[in-house]
Amino acid sequence: MHTIWTIAKRELATFFDSLIAYIILALFLGFSGFFTWLYGNDIFLVGQANLRVFFNIASWSLFFFIPAITMKMLAEERKTGTLELLLTKSVSDREVILGKFLGSILLICIALTATLPYVITVANIGNLDNGGTICGYLGLLLLSIAYTAIGIFASSITTNQIVAFMTALLIGLFFQIIFGVLAQNFTGSLGQFFDTLDLQSHFESISRGVLDSKDLVYFLSITVLGLYLGEWSLSKRHIS
């Protein structure tokens, strides 16, 4: 655990050192803020409904920005050779993956915390369902861990950051849109199957305030699978 924390801390420090963190945070807040303002301009009328617009838009922002956070994590280390140095320290492949995972989750948590003033503003104006708000954030967090795991896997299979970014986005696209579209176009058990895979519907049911273990299992499965595949690909050392 200590090792994972050491790696996560370094990741975070590197982020904030290289300005990337600030750019991503600014873009994330700007992007979410702008679209929430654009689509939710009846903010003064409906408190909770308006927050739902915000959670929806934040989920899209995360969909784009998480691959940008994770893309260099392993690809860059493999390219510069520092991965060799890291993995010959007394560290296991799993600890490296988990450390990187924790590092980017912490950055995302910072980004999500930065949106709190917005929620507080809404709460001061209209009446706010605290439980619903917490569920909304929980949904964003679950979505984040799933996309981070996918991003880390994408970063583990290449030495090129751009390829890692595109791969993560492409895999994410299936969960974010394509499975949902397929679910609508197929009926019966196939439609059911795609609906189960669709991330949006799981996210929406959580952010509506309905906590179902099925949704939790869904997000956690993607996360575990992504991290596991990342570890597996890291154990095959020779990809160039």
Partner: peptide, 14 residues
Amino acid sequence: IGYLPENNPLYLDM
């Protein structure tokens, strides 16, 4: 083990 790999890879931004 203490290891110095060839080409000495390091985190340049640290």
